[in-house]
Design a protein around this nucleic acid. Structure first.
Lengths: 195, 195
DNA sequence: GAGCTACTGAAACAGTCGTGTCAGTGGGCG
DNA sequence: CGCCCACTGACACGACTGTTTCAGTAGCTC
């Protein structure tokens, strides 16, 4: 049914991983087959052969990035967990991950893909932003106690939590001022629980 | 001193305005001179002549977009105002503007430029994200009462306000779910003032 | 009228893009 | 051995890209 339902071959995942590392430092916007192939020790011919087309490669790269994202989310909000940790602790822990300098490249790539998918909803980028919002809202919902999770107020609270995380991340990526931005997130957490 | 300190000619601002309208609907990422020129009734030759290069044109377009942004900010936080309206009201009013459907294209363009300037800080896009964060923080500072404005807590509060606005905007652009996102912003406002 | 400035059209330049063609390689398995 | 299959190199195709060259044209001032 899908155009690429076949299990990826060993060589395919090897090249995808190399291309992913390349994309993390060079960005996806002006990604070009020839420079990429030269950098990862391959050739445009092979990339086209393995991924079908450049669009296919980009789709694979976006899926790869999303896998990293989902792996992060799984650490905090495994939907079927016994006891939920609550939104406050979830935001706290997620922010620690987002603010870590070693994750900057991935988050820049994420921002790039997100923005691009807003401008042109069709093609390889299509739906990335939408998908990522749903991923995160679901994960945050998994962190809320059941009583809070359902109902309008629960939706509102996790939407707000996501907004704070995303907005703070944008600020951090632009200014690199971790002290100021982290202080803002902390400020939110103190007001978020009580009241 | 600057490479383009000359006052823009009438024809230049006319074409810039047309190109700006084009960029608002088509995005900046894969902007190309020939299709753009054809759409606005000009020619690649003329665009190069008037703006020096494609980079010059992109820079002019980004400056044009920033002008729109600064015009918005001026409406809320004119730095030398007699009485400050406070962060809560500022966020409230700014959000009303951001959530208006007719501003969607501008905000998509903004997100695109922001993300791109994160990935490649050099070139025409360079520094856009950084500049825009400073613009907004300054504007929000202008809305805070003087006693709150200075000091660490004031900085933290306006950083948080900006993060909520930006994060909510990202959500809105991706999901178009104005009711949910606006509810989240409102929720924040009730907690923001009191406590 | 001459001369200057601002703008414009047509065509071509060198380069890069994604992709297709054709001919192989090497290894596992019958 | 021979066959197949995943993979690969060299190369060319056509369609773009930003930019340049050359040759203007309108309008203004002197």
């Amino acid at each position: 049914m899908s155009e690429e339902a076949t299990t990826p071959s060993a060589r395919q995942v090897e090249l995808l991983e190399a291309a992913y590392a390349y994309a993390l430092t060079h960005g996806l916007a002006d990604l070009s087959l020839r420079p990429l192939a030269a950098a990862i020790g391959s050739s445009p011919r092979v990339l086209i052969f393995l991924f079908g087309s450049k669009d296919g490669l980009v789709r694979a790269l976006l899926a790869r990035a999303r896998a990293d994202e989902l792996a992060l989310l799984d650490r905090f909000g495994p939907a079927g967990r016994k006891e939920s940790i609550g939104l406050v602790r979830a935001v706290e822990e997620v922010w620690a991950w987002l603010a870590a300098p070693e994750h900057r490249p991935l988050l820049r790539l994420w921002a790039e893909a997100y923005a691009r998918s807003l401008v042109e909803p069709d093609g390889a980028w299509g739906g990335f932003a939408r998908r990522t919002v749903d991923d995160w809202l679901d994960a945050l919902a998994g962190c809320q106690p059941p009583a809070e999770r359902d109902g309008e107020q629960g939706t509102t609270r996790r939407t707000l939590a996501l907004a704070v995380l995303r907005g703070a991340l944008l600020d951090l990526l632009a200014t690199d001022d971790e002290a100021r931005v982290t202080a803002a997130v902390r400020q939110q957490l103190t007001h978020f629980g009580g009241c």
